[in-house]
Amino acid sequence: MEAVQQYSETELVYLLKQRSESAFSYLYDNYAQSLNAVILNIVPDHDLVQDVLQEVFVKIWKQIESYDAQKGRLFTWMLNIARNAAIDLVRSKGYRKQQQSSELTDRAAESAGTSQVATDHIGLRKLVYQLKEEQRVLVELSYFQGYTQDEIAQLLQIPLSTVKTRLRSALTQLRSSIKA
């Protein structure tokens, strides 16, 4: 029954707020792969990616009550939940410690071209690598590391307006490669 069921975004949100199991199942089937890719671009550790993806869907389930269609579409909303959850993990103390201790192995793996590097070649990362260096840094800091534009301006010692302009032009380039 659920397999053939097609929901409009409005119906889906309504049913999720009604705590419908089939609606949640549908939501997962339709969005898990793209959200997984988002997390995969930020968290290089595959095992942790799975934990984050699970955590993200629990968050979506818990927070669907506060979702407001007036403020944005469902995918945009979920994309930000996924990206923020991934960034939160990468920034957490426990994660950093673990990364420091395994930094040597990582570097070795990177140079050897194993799975850790492979994440750089999927999703948005792959496209970002095609940008000019000055644009790439901005996307890296904002999208993948979660810095605000203000923070980036301070960090890079460039005016906020320059950050905005460069980021915008980086994004329009990204868009054209996404559409290509």
């Binding site: 792969q33 997984n36 995969l40 945009t76 868009r175």
Partner: peptide, 15 residues
Amino acid sequence: EAALKQQLENSAPPP
């Protein structure tokens, strides 16, 4: 949104 979702799905295996 749709293009981005598509690109993301094409770039990574399903969980």
